[in-house]
Write a protein that binds this DNA or RNA. Structure first.
Length: 570
DNA sequence: GCCGTTTTCGGCCCGACTGTTTTCAGTCG
């Protein structure tokens, strides 16, 4: 079992303990073990009980629990607590801004056990009357419930892609299956997915139905399934999956039809016809042929949104989209200096092993005390270590960066003489996150105007399917970046993908450079770069417009020039 | 439940912010 899965169970156990009124210190011991385990760099699954006990915050009892979770997938305490907690309560505890204490009160005083009833209670003004609640909390709760309900059943792209790969592999092994492909939103690499759709050409539907019906992880939706499609739920993620049936002959036409957004499919082409019309004319054997028949150049699936790609195609000016091997370095990463799992050297070595030429390390700044943010003397220490490593790993280079918290007034949280010591500065907001649009926008613009800011980090602070992020005036923020020469990141973590690709297009039109940053907190985090790349491509991002596609020499010079300019402005 | 010992049990516990209080609890990063 992966560390992440084990930790998730312990984290949920702590939440349930709190919900059921367990001793606060006992809960805290679970929470502190969780935060220690989250920073543990090696696999827990291969450790015995004695070794587990050596981990800080893990004693005899937790060591045995971890061992049991790894062996059996769960442990008694979690099972007992889960058994006495309605599923809706678990969902209520996931509401952003609301923890076990508040949910416990709502459950006990009002008997509410699901999101739907909770929404009604908000509307009927019943929440504000509870002790410890008030009007503002009720409004916040209602917003959180509505947000949660509106995204129910969605999964992140990463999960959709991984799940699709697994199902496709299994379908391909079935008798009678001729062709299989992901399609619709997933093939267009949308950031969140519902339903996950897979197109299957098969001569033996019965085999497929049998495969779904027999799989314990699937819950077949007989009512909504029929001769054209099979619908079911993937239980571990509560994800909706549709298998769309077609024939081998119709496969390409149907793949095109189900992939494209209706606005792409039905857009008026040169002679007044649309792709829909063209598809009715004949059965094509490749998507390239379909575009050829339309008189258009080939358009990759992720661009088929009916937004800007057809104008590009008409002018035969589809951008040469950025690819993984265009990326020369990885910026915005954390190490054990703050809240990362791996040491500076491990982060650097792995980055080098992956074939990149440079790494930008940007641990948390001093305000982020929860994340072990760097006080000034620790910044100095890290810079000394980077100097040593740079000699050792040359020509590979580590750039000295920081993820500086943007404070309430938009200032960065070091004095200029400290800011000056970095090669680059990623400026990000971490708290507080609840602001109105004007406050948030001004706060960001102040940080952008700081001459030491190189990159704007995760501009909205959103966590897809979990929290909306603070509202900002995107255009004003992007315009400011254009004015002050600040690069904007696409935070490539699959839960963030922030800046949103829809605004990446606007940023590119304004000449703002985009950096695809994984915000890695461990070596494995580098692989998230791919998800940032996917959404960048949706916006038409090219290598030339991608900041971390610069060569080592180019980016060194850029940082140098930028600092020179900053020093002349202070 | 964990830790560190005065080795058998008492103390544990970041800090800012919000919204509720009327001095603090809950939540978050």
């Amino acid at each position: 079992m992966e560390n992440k899965q084990i930790i998730k169970i312990l984290k949920n156990t702590a939440k349930l303990m709190e919900l059921h009124g367990e001793n606060d210190f006992k809960v805290k011991s679970y929470q502190s073990a969780v935060s220690s385990l989250e920073r543990h760099p090696t696999s827990l699954a291969i450790m015995d009980i004695d070794e587990l006990q050596n981990i800080e915050g893990v004693g005899k009892s937790l060591a045995q629990s971890i061992y049991q979770i790894n062996e059996q997938g769960s442990f008694e305490l979690f099972d007992d607590l889960s058994a006495k907690t309605p599923e809706g309560i678990v969902e209520m505890m996931q509401l952003s801004g609301f923890g076990p204490k508040k949910i416990k009160l709502i459950w006990e005083k009002l008997g509410i056990e699901n999101l739907e009833d909770l929404l009604i209670a908000c509307k009927e003004n019943k929440i504000a009357a509870l002790k410890g609640f008030g009007d503002k909390t009720q409004v916040k709760l209602q917003e959180a419930v509505e947000y949660k309900l509106s995204w129910r059943g969605y999964i992140h792209y990463r999960e959709a892609e991984q799940l699709a790969e697994k199902i496709i592999k299994e379908l391909k092994s079935l008798e009678g299956v001729k062709e299989v492909s992901i399609t619709s939103d997933t093939r267009r690499k949308m950031e969140v997915i519902k339903p996950l759709e897979i197109l299957v050409a098969s001569e033996n539907k019965a085999k497929i139905i049998q495969y779904v019906a027999k799989n314990d992880e699937f819950d077949l939706d007989k009512k909504n399934s029929g001769p054209l499609s099979l619908k079911f739920i993937y239980k571990p993620l509560k994800a909706e999956i549709h298998l769309i049936f077609t024939t081998k002959e119709q496969f390409v036409n149907d793949l095109f039809k189900t992939t494209a957004h209706p606005k792409h499919l039905n857009a008026e082409l040169e002679k007044g016809e649309s792709f829909s019309h063209i598809l009715k004319e004949k059965q094509f054997s490749s998507e390239e042929e379909i575009y050829k028949a339309s008189g258009f150049p080939f358009i990759v699936p992720e661009l088929r949104e009916g937004l800007w790609e057809l104008n590009w195609a008409k002018e035969n000016a589809i951008p040469d989209l950025v690819e993984m091997n265009d990326l020369k370095g990885i910026l915005h990463n954390h190490s054990t200096y703050s809240d990362g799992k791996n040491s500076l050297e491990e982060m650097a070595q792995y980055c080098k092993d992956l074939g990149y030429d440079y790494l930008g390390i940007s641990d948390h700044s001093k305000t982020a005390s929860y994340a072990n943010g760097l006080q000034e003397f620790r910044v100095k220490k890290q810079h000394e270590e980077i100097d040593v490593l740079n000699e050792k790993l040359a020509p590979f280079k580590i750039f000295k960066g920081i993820e500086s918290d943007i404070l309430n007034d938009g200032s960065l949280d070091y004095a200029n003489d400290v800011l000056e010591s970095f090669d680059f500065v990623v400026a990000s907001i971490h708290s507080p996150l609840s602001m109105d649009e004007k406050t948030a926008t001004n706060r960001l613009i102040n940080a952008i105007a700081n001459p030491f800011t190189t990159i704007l980090g995760h501009p909205t602070g959103r966590l897809l399917l979990q929290r909306k992020g603070y509202p900002i005036n995107h255009k004003a923020v992007i315009d400011a970046c254009a004015e002050y020469g600040v690069v904007i990141e696409i935070n490539a973590h699959p839960w963030r993908l922030d800046l949103d690709w829809r605004y990446v297009r606007y940023a590119l039109d304004k000449g703002v450079q985009i950096s695809i940053n994984p915000d890695a907190h461990e070596t494995n985090g580098y692989h998230d770069m791919y998800y940032g790349l996917c959404v960048g491509r949706k916006a038409g991002l090219t290598a030339k417009e991608t900041f971390n596609a610069k060569s080592l020499d180019e980016i060194s010079q850029y940082f140098k020039d930028r600092k020179k300019s900053a020093l002349s402005k202070i």
